[in-house]
Each structure stands twice: as structure tokens, then as C-alpha cells.
Design a protein around this nucleic acid. Structure first.
Lengths: 216, 216
DNA sequence: GCTATTTTGTAGCATTTGCTCCAATATTGG
DNA sequence: CCAATATTGGAGCAAATGCTACAAAATAGC
């Protein structure tokens, strides 16, 4: 308890004298597994037993490393967003192109959706599942939507600046693209066939191309 | 058990001799309550206790009248689709207009979404939540998407026939509208503010108007 | 009134679920 | 080696969940 101050040894105020047993798992690998489970089953559809099995960890380890089930979801969302952002959204955000960047983005989205069939996007799924009941998730979803919209808008502004498209309704177009992207994910989650998903992505890309200004 | 055929009374093979206790509730009113609960909480987020409270019925009555919890969802979806269809989709499907009908539809959707804030569309929510795991729900969701797409496509065909728009990419445009509509609902469910939802619907309507052919 | 038939109310069952308690284990500074 | 610290395994708890069993209640035909 108290330092029981010996007359001389006032130094070293009972500082930690050991580092404890080391963790037996890789933090990020475990988070990847959590992403996979939440992604497939949704938050409510994932039980702690599912997590224990998928993560290969005992409950005490899970709750010790991360907090609650919801905390684990938050951590998984963090990791997921970082990855999805790097592979899909990043190129659009850093591109110098206009319509071409948008087209490339939705093209990538198409193949990505096909690769993760019937899963959609974890962030958007969570957004839909949560129903705005958890402030934390709601805020995160709103930020994500804002980020998507900003990326679309940026590309459209670049496009207009390059004379590729006329500069009317750029905001409205960005909003339309955002709706369409969310819809794509929901359709994927809702059991749309690859053919249907292909048509849906084509629909978006066709419109993007339709915004290109033709010589008059 | 067996009719224990008396020598003469071969007639009336033990037919029902009473009609039993009558139900104490209105079938459709109860379904409306079920719609409300599933709509607000989602399927997994709704417990049988929630249903008992909202429906004002004892569990045995619920399970006697409808089958399982999932059967009740199916019945609720039936009723919901009939209602939503009458008020929103019906006018679009039966209209003779082209772009105007589309604009009116998305305008109605906008006010409807605002009225049911943070709820989105029950069918689309279920589509997203289920994740394609239940064949029955998946089929229903697919049919609903098909129906929406057909309505959009029909309006675009009418529009092209009237010379209101050029007849290119009508399929792609219908697909785009479908994606956008699904996205609108998810955004609503995901905690988008009324302002953001207004912008999103405006984005769709602006594009619809953009399809109008201008005099050259 | 009586019987057959159906619904209702209540208690509760078997399972699942999120999470915790705690002894055993592994590690590091001294 | 020892004390201090941190993690692990695993049993298991309290609550929730979907659903059922069963007796009481209400109706229609006889």
C-alpha cells in the first residue's frame, strides 16, 4: 500500500518494477479479423463468441486489449477506413484529373464491390444498421459522407477549371454522386447480382461521362 | 379420434361444432404497429418484448396469429410495401408524364424522408440489414429494386417519346436513379441532417432536370 | 346448457449474449 | 531468484431472447 517510508529510501516511489506478460497476438492482425467478422455479420449479428473464434482470443484478452464490443467495432472501423481510403478514396483525393478521376474511382468501386460480393462497405453498412442511435457512429458516418462529397466536389471543380465540363450545379452533382455511391453499396449488400451491380456502376459512370462538355 | 362410425350417423364426419374465441385485435392495426417497431429498431434490434408492448398482445397471441418473429416481419413488409407503394411509387408508375413525374417523385421522396427522419425506408433498411442471408428477404429486395428501376425507366421512355429528352442512355439513367434513391434512404438512416438530405434530393432532381433537352 | 374450438394470459424454459472474476502464466527490473 | 506487473485461459454470471406449455376464457353449433 503506502510506501511505508523507510527513513532513507525516499527515492523510487514504488515505480513499476516489471513489464508484465507480453501480448501473444498482433494487434493489427486481430483488428483485421474483427473487421472481417463485423463486415460479414454486421454489429448486432456478431456475437462475442464469433469474435473469440475469429480472433483466436479468449474473452478476457479481447476485453483487456480493447474495451467493449462497441469499442472493438470503433477500432475496427478506424483500421478499415484507413485501408479503404488508401486503396479507393485516396487516388481520387490526390488526383489532378477531373472527370477521368471520377470515372476511375467508380470503376475501382465496381471491381471492389464485385470482389467483396454481398458485403458492401463496412462503414456504410454500419451507418445503415446503427440507425443513428449511437452518436459516435453517427458522427463518424457523417464525416465519411462529408469526405466522399468533398472528394467528388473537388474532382468536379478541377474538371470545370479545365474546361472539361461547365461549372453549373457542381454541388448538386457531388451530392448526386454521393447518393449513388451509398446506393451502390446497399444494393451490393441487398443481394444484387454481379450483373445488376455492373449495370448500376455503369449508370453512374455514364452520367459522369455525360457531364463532359461537347464542342458546340 | 376416429369417427367411431355409429351404424347410421355416417354423415357429418365430426365437423367443427364451434367457431372458437374471436380475436380481440385488429389484424391490420397490429401489423401497422409491427411496421413501426421494425422500422425504428430494425429486425435484429427488435425484441419480442418490444413487439408485445407495441402490439399490446401477449406472446401467445402473436405467435398464434403470425408465426415466428421473421414471419411477422414478412407480413409487416407486405403491408408496408402496399402502403408506401400507393403513396409514393404508384403516382410515378401510373403517370403519363416524363421528367415531371420523376421530379415529382423525388420531391415526394424528399418530404417523405423528412417526415420519417432517421428511419429511411423499411424495405431498404431490411435489405441492408439482412445482408443477403435470408433468401426470402433477398428476393423481395431484388423485386423491389426491379420495380423501382422499371418505374424510372418507364418515365424516361415517356420523356424521350415526348421529345423532352434525347433517348440515349435511358437504361443507364434509370440505374443511376435507382442507386441514388437507395443512397438517399441510407443517408437518412445514417443520421444525415434535414439540410443534408435536402441537398441530396436536390442533387437528384437537378440531374433529372439536366436531362431535359434544350433548344439548339 | 353443453361440447367443440379457438384465443388469451401467464409463467417460464432453454439458449444466447455481453462481459467479469480469478487463478495461472509470462515477462522485466532489481 | 524475487517482487511487481500485465496477459491469458476458462469457468461462469446476470440479463435478455425467441418461443412454448397450459389452463382459463370466449364464442358458435347442437
Amino acid at each position: 500500500m503506502k510506501p511505508t517510508a523507510g527513513t532513507t529510501s525516499i527515492t523510487t516511489p514504488a515505480g513499476p518494477r516489471g513489464a508484465g506478460r507480453p501480448r501473444s497476438f498482433d494487434h493489427d492482425a486481430v483488428l483485421d479479423a474483427a473487421v472481417e467478422v463485423f463486415w460479414g455479420n454486421g454489429f448486432r449479428g456478431t456475437t462475442t463468441r464469433d469474435l473469440e473464434a475469429a480472433l483466436g482470443l479468449a474473452p478476457s484478452s479481447i476485453y483487456n486489449a480493447f474495451g467493449s464490443k462497441r469499442d472493438l467495432l470503433t477500432a475496427a472501423l478506424d483500421r478499415y477506413e484507413r485501408q479503404i481510403t488508401d486503396s479507393l478514396l485516396g487516388p481520387l483525393e490526390t488526383s489532378n484529373e477531373g472527370l477521368a478521376a471520377l470515372d476511375a474511382f467508380f470503376c475501382s468501386v465496381g471491381t471492389w464491390i464485385a470482389a467483396h460480393r454481398r458485403q458492401g462497405c463496412l462503414l456504410i453498412n454500419t451507418m445503415a444498421e446503427d440507425g443513428g442511435t449511437t452518436d459516435r457512429i453517427t458522427r463518424r458516418a457523417s464525416q465519411y459522407r462529408l469526405r466522399l462529397r468533398r472528394a467528388f466536389h473537388g474532382a468536379l471543380i478541377r474538371s470545370a477549371a479545365a474546361g472539361e465540363t461547365n461549372d453549373d450545379h457542381l454541388e448538386a452533382r457531388a451530392d448526386l454522386l454521393l447518393s449513388a455511391l451509398l446506393g451502390l453499396n446497399i444494393a451490393a449488400r441487398g443481394g444484387a447480382t454481379p450483373a445488376e451491380l455492373g449495370r448500376l456502376t455503369t449508370g453512374v459512370r455514364t452520367q459522369v461521362e455525360g457531364w463532359r462538355v461537347t464542342e458546340t
